[in-house]
Design a binder for these strands. Structure first.
Lengths: 122, 122
DNA sequence: TAATTGTTATACTTATGATATAACAACTAT
DNA sequence: ATAGTTGTTATATCATAAGTATAACAATTA
């Protein structure tokens, strides 16, 4: 699992890290039941503080992407709640779609991008 | 144009304001060429500081949604750059789609939500 | 026993969001 | 001409969040 942090980004490090773990799980680079690097190991690898990685792991656990097994560390364990996931997706998407409509993007163009991303990410 | 700010939200006030202006423009509650309330008037209306509204207006101007006419104040003027808008949409969408894939959302389900939002917002 | 796991606690620095005045040039209305 | 309003800029202050730095804990592993 490769990690690339942009320290000049306006996005928080733990958010960048979380997003890349999203991608890794989606693309099966990280598979269900697989262990993630320890917070200390990953922090050392990407050159940030342990707590920054721990924050990413904690939010991922809280949002149902990881579980902590005392003997195996942080393990990929995706909790599926379709209705909740659909509701969250819609809430996250609303301002983005509104922005796109303002900029003249058609429904078909946006759905084309969704197609592209599904191809790239699964 | 109605504005609703949630002061307990984790989203910054100027971001909430910006998102609602996105929606207002998309739904033609705010039409091309139409003037927005002055920063002071809107700040007073929703009970926040002038600079908070100014920050929302500034980012909207910088992102090509408003222009400033000295005699008419902030005016809706959407700058259309299809390629740039598509690229930004894709960049914003990537982590969301990755998250959705992890949670088992199908391509069709996500595109269904896009359809719903286009119906609601245009 | 020694080392590693996630986690928690405390403390510090830095960056950002929000507020508070104040002022400026450009424009509008009286 | 005067007074008021426009977006904008400049400072300053406060609160919160992000990130760093040590340290410690119970549970597990080698």
């Amino acid at each position: 699992m490769l990690v690339e942090i942009d320290f000049n980004s306006d996005e928080a490090i733990y958010i960048q890290l979380r997003n890349q773990i999203f991608v890794a799980i989606a693309t099966s680079q990280l598979k269900e039941g697989e262990s993630l690097p320890s917070v200390r190991a990953l922090a050392d690898k990407i050159g940030v503080n342990m707590h920054t990685v721990n924050k990413a792991y904690s939010t991922l656990r809280q949002d149902g992407f990881l579980k902590v097994d005392r003997r195996r560390g942080a393990v990929v364990a995706v909790d599926i709640d379709k209705l909740d996931s659909m509701a969250k997706m819609k809430a996250y998407l609303r301002p983005l779609i509104a922005r796109g409509i303002c900029k003249g993007l058609s429904k078909e163009e946006v759905k084309g991008i969704v197609d592209q991303l599904y191809d790239e990410l699964s």
